[in-house]
Structure formats: C-alpha cells, structure tokens
C-alpha cells in the first residue's frame, strides 16, 4: 500500500514538472514576442515601410531593404525551385530506394541540410562573389540562399510525390501514357499542395537567414537598381542596427517586428495549408 501511495506521489511530481517545463517554454515565447511588439510598435507605420533609411538607419524607414530582401528571395526561388523539383522527381520516381546514386545524392543533401549558415556565407563569398565574379550582389546572396534551402525543398517535394497513391501511376500506364506525360500531367498536379507548402516553408527559412548573406549580398542600404547591385537583407539590417549603430535600437525593433510578423504569417499559412490539403490528399 505504501508503494502505491509513493507511486501516486511520484506521478504527481512528474506531472507538476512537466507542466512547469511547458509553461516555462510558453512564457519565454510570449515574453520574446511581447518584447518585440512593444519595442517596435511605436515606430511602425506606413511611412516606415515606404521611406528610405536615414542617418545609418536611426531614422527613416526600410523601403530599400524590403525591396532587396524580396529580390534576394526571388533569385533564391527561381534558382532552387527547378533544381529541387527535378531532383525530387528523380529521387521519387526513377530511383530505387536502395540504389547507389539515390543514396549518395540523399546523403549529400542530408549533410547540406546541416551545414552552418556562416559556412554557406564563406562558400557563397568564395564561389559566387569571387570565382563567378558576381561580387557583393543580390544575385550572389540569392544563389547562396538557394543552395541553403535546397535540402528542405527537395525533401518536401519528394515526400509529396511519394505520398501519392500508386493508382495514379498504374492508371496512367494503363492509358499508355509515357512516364514524362504521367509526371507532368498527373503526378505533379496531384502533388501540387505539398509543393506549395514546401515552397512557403523555404521562403520562410530563406527570409530568416542572416549569416549567409553578410558576405554575399552585402551591407549597402540604398535602393538596388539591378540584381548586380549589393542589397541589404532585412535580417542584416536588424543586425547592423543592433550592434553597429548606437541609437539604432528603436528601428532595429521596428524592423524585427516587420520580419517576425511576416514570418508568423508565412509559417501559419504553410501549416494551415499543410493540414488542410495534405490530410485530404492522404484520405483521397
């Protein structure tokens, strides 16, 4: 009987510990979010989004930074989407799971997923900026990010295609479709939801990145006039205001608020779409 009572006590202690840990994590999250909102809300306005920064970013807005960020993301997606789509199709449709080629590609993508972002920065600097002669430019930054999001994009696309029922493939084969037609007319349209979710997640990952961009797209905070111009990404702007610009804290907070809100929206949309579409496609 004494043992039973001890067991009940122990269960209660563990329950309290677990709840405490969970509450602690939630409190830290709310604290962080509240701090960013409170610190940034006062400065946030329409003009903040549409003005150029003045006085090293202490005053003015972040318009050129937003444009540069959007351009970097665009370059990143244009480069990474076709490449990852092709790789994922190959891995999902044409490569036996235990084949040597598929294994090597997968293994190297696993390592790529773990490479620290600052190392991507070094690589981007050495390869895109110097070897390819792109210099500090939006193009270099976007291409560096493309290498970085590749594993995530390939992974989500491949899983999306693998989760499709084999009925699609058999029906297409029975109709005498070539594999090419099957892929482009049947499988890809059917896998579109998971492709879009993967795309949104990758945009979120790419726009949160800083370290890979400092030495590739650079620090220049003017409005870029072409892809060969240096452009400051929004994360780099926050970093610069926080540690290099005395008196830049307020604008750093306001910029961080813009970024966090954008990311919360991006990630929520991805997870909402994921739940809505992917569940349906499994049932289907």
């Amino acid at each position: 009987m004494a043992k039973g009572r001890w067991n009940r006590w122990r269960d209660a202690i563990v329950a309290v510990t677990t709840w405490t840990a969970a509450i602690l994590v939630a409190v830290v999250f709310v604290w962080l979010l509240a701090d960013i909102v409170i610190g940034g809300i006062a400065k946030l306005s329409w003009t903040f989004l549409t003005e150029a920064p003045r006085d090293a970013g202490r005053a003015g807005g972040i318009a050129p930074i937003l444009v540069s960020t959007a351009l970097i993301l665009a370059v990143c997606m244009v480069a990474s989407v076709p490449l990852s789509l092709a790789t994922a199709i190959l891995l999902a449709e044409f490569t036996p799971a235990d084949g040597i080629f598929g294994r090597v590609v997968r293994r190297s993508l696993d390592v790529l997923a773990g490479v620290p972002s600052i190392v991507f920065g070094l690589f981007g600097y050495a390869f895109f900026c110097n070897t390819l002669g792109l210099g500090f430019s939006i193009l270099s930054g976007g291409l560096t990010l493309a290498c970085m999001v590749l594993p995530l994009l390939i992974r989500t696309t491949e899983e999306g295609m693998r989760s499709l029922s084999d009925d699609y493939r058999r029906a297409a084969a029975a109709l005498g479709m070539t594999r090419t037609t099957t892929i482009f007319k049947v499988l890809l349209p059917a896998a579109l939801p998971s492709l879009i979710v993967g795309l949104i997640l990758s945009i979120g990952r790419a726009s949160a990145e800083t370290a890979a961009l400092i030495f590739t797209s650079g620090y220049v905070d003017r409005m870029p006039s072409s892809l060969w111009d240096s452009g400051r990404a929004i994360t780099v702007h926050i970093l610069d205001l926080a540690i290099n610009v005395p008196g830049g804290t307020e604008n750093a907070y306001a910029t961080a608020l813009v970024l966090v809100m954008a990311l919360l929206i991006i990630n929520s949309v991805a997870s909402w779409l994921g739940q809505r579409w992917l569940r349906r496609s499994i049932v289907r």
Binding site: W31, L32, T210, I238, L239, A242, Y253, V260, S271
Partner: peptide, 21 residues
C-alpha cells in the same frame, strides 16, 4: 503550433532579444 512558430523565428531576432533583455 507554438513550438513550430518558435522554430521559425530568425536567429537575429533571438539575438536582438538576448542583447536587449
């Protein structure tokens, strides 16, 4: 969902909070 959102916050924002708070 909260944990997922926490995963999506950029490191520079964590850094800002860490530096200021």
């Amino acid at each position: 969902r909260l944990i997922e959102l926490l995963a999506g916050i950029p490191s520079v924002v964590y850094g800002l909070w860490g530096l200021m708070v």
